[in-house]
Nucleic acid binder design. Sequence first.
DNA 1: CGAGGTCTTGACCTCCCTCAAGCCTTGTGG
DNA 2: CCACAAGGCTTGAGGGAGGTCAAGACCTCG
Lengths: 243, 243
Amino acid sequence: MTTLFPAHELKNICAGCSLRELCLPIGLEHDELSQLDQIIKQRIPVKRGEALFRTDDPFRSLYAVRTGFFKTVVLSEDGREQVTGFHMSGELIGLDALGGERHACTAIALEDCEVCELPFEQLESLSKDIPALTRHFYKLMSREIVRDQGVMLLLGNMRAEERLAAFLLNLSQRLGARGFSSSGFHLRMTREEIGSFLGMKLETVSRTFSKFQTDGLIAVQGKQITLRDLPALKQLLSGCARN
Amino acid sequence: MTTLFPAHELKNICAGCSLRELCLPIGLEHDELSQLDQIIKQRIPVKRGEALFRTDDPFRSLYAVRTGFFKTVVLSEDGREQVTGFHMSGELIGLDALGGERHACTAIALEDCEVCELPFEQLESLSKDIPALTRHFYKLMSREIVRDQGVMLLLGNMRAEERLAAFLLNLSQRLGARGFSSSGFHLRMTREEIGSFLGMKLETVSRTFSKFQTDGLIAVQGKQITLRDLPALKQLLSGCARN
DNA sequence: CGAGGTCTTGACCTCCCTCAAGCCTTGTGG
DNA sequence: CCACAAGGCTTGAGGGAGGTCAAGACCTCG
């Protein structure tokens, strides 16, 4: 098997990565990017069902999803799990442990994935040369906090149909931003995982999908979803408080 | 009116502040602390009902609660509010905007308060001299993310009694850590605000308080709460999944 | 091709929301 | 300092959204 590219080309990952705009949306000079390249371990494969890390694992690295789809879950004391998020290409996983000693959630691959590993210690020392990096991580973390607050609003105030509509629209928007179709997509997670994330039972998820289909809002074929009436879905959200 | 202390004494706030262990639990040298003192505006009063900042206000500073009690809220599109947290002395508010341009929530004083203001730009430049500061903010933010994930678990998995028990135990623990009584305290927030935070209606909050009282778990007199049976309250949480 | 996981649908039930009425607390102005 | 208003709290009755249990269909992957 011959190598098509010389090693130094293969090594230059961030500069050539189409996801750079998502991972590192900061104006880095070319030599700064290659500094980053030096410390990032690229394209680590993670098989479907495998954990990227688990709760209480020592925190060493952040991970950028390159291809594939992850869920993060936290476990309650009695062992039940709450899905806290779904993560697709260009998104960083592990921010909940940044600066701490141990991971606070478990990240599981929902399909065969590739990730880039960003070792935190090296990132931290690189931050001395590239101040924008620190600012960038502040921004990523605050965005994560805001996202979580949005989920709290969803869980605290919305009814089942509104939750599922919000979920579908969010997926659609994120897929669209990555150049995929925003109106038709394949769900990587089960009804149970959707339900766990949205605070409802899998039967309710299934029923609500069916109702949306009956109402002509979407088409459902197992995990294949087609959004048929975006305005109506968005409409569902405008009155998103329970009272 | 005479000044009891010379100005340079008054200025030395962090070093003499009893909350330092909570705000800045990092081993800072004395001269580092006085560098911090230079940039921190101390003891800003905020009257009950007033906003420390509002959603979309430009982000300039973090705030450390010195005395008093705050709530943070986010507003849904149609104007209903979700309480995302309650904040007491020694806790930092504004992390959801750190690194960003604008605040993502509104912080309201639930009683007359005093806060210390930490201007972000000056904090950032100070971080070049004190590397531990950056690490500290990473830690604070990741802790906030973990806290939010805990709330997601609560909202997604728990029933009314479990939510309220979790809420009371959390308050108790935080008050205890500050040297206040952990078994008897005065609620600063209304039933409606508790309900908003916990994803239930104020009537359900009230009913659940009454039930806890009937069961001998707590004593309720308006906003005055006494925890009477801590083990039983904790017991409620051990089976904290709905299924 | 068969087994196990996943999904759908139905029937029933429960928890919590809704609406309503009245009481209590707090703050303000006379 | 008292009276009253307005907000906050409690409690009851009734109903509905979604949970629970169950049965069967449908994938999908070894």
